[in-house]
Design a protein around this nucleic acid. Structure first.
Length: 112
DNA sequence: AACTTGACGTGAC
DNA sequence: AGTCACGCCAAGT
């Protein structure tokens, strides 16, 4: 785990974590925040993701329930996100949400 | 320096 | 399943 830092470093840390997410997997904003010490509120993770650089796989970060939360602010971006995820093999459910049960990435804990 | 605003999450209806 | 209130706290105004 990494130590909490502020400003550019805080953002850089979030981006660093998001880059660890493997192709075909997704994580929630809250998860990313929990990996930091001390934890960073999910809301801030989202805020930081808005400014994500090119090399950061921002599309692999979704709401905990599998929602593409960018949709309400930028529907076009949400469409792109869905396209990118599907290209990676991420499955979507009937209700349009990501199938978290099979695609959620859990690096630091085992399923029970 | 006070106030508002989020690519969120949870619990209560 | 869909609101709604509220907590979170860094940043912007």
């Amino acid at each position: 785990m990494l130590r909490r830092q502020y400003g550019e470093h805080l953002m850089a840390e979030v981006y660093h974590l998001v880059r660890q997410v493997p192709t075909g997997k997704v994580v929630s904003y809250g998860q990313v925040g929990e990996w930091m010490v001390p934890p960073l509120p999910a809301l801030l993770v989202g805020k930081i993701m808005y400014h994500a650089p090119e090399e950061v796989p921002w599309w692999r970060v979704v709401g905990k329930a599998g929602d593409l939360l960018i949709a309400k602010r930028d529907p076009r971006l949400a469409a792109l996100q869905r396209q990118l995820l599907q290209q990676e093999g991420v499955r979507f459910r009937e209700d349009g949400r990501v199938d978290m049960a099979s695609c959620r990435w859990q690096p630091f804990e085992e399923e029970r």
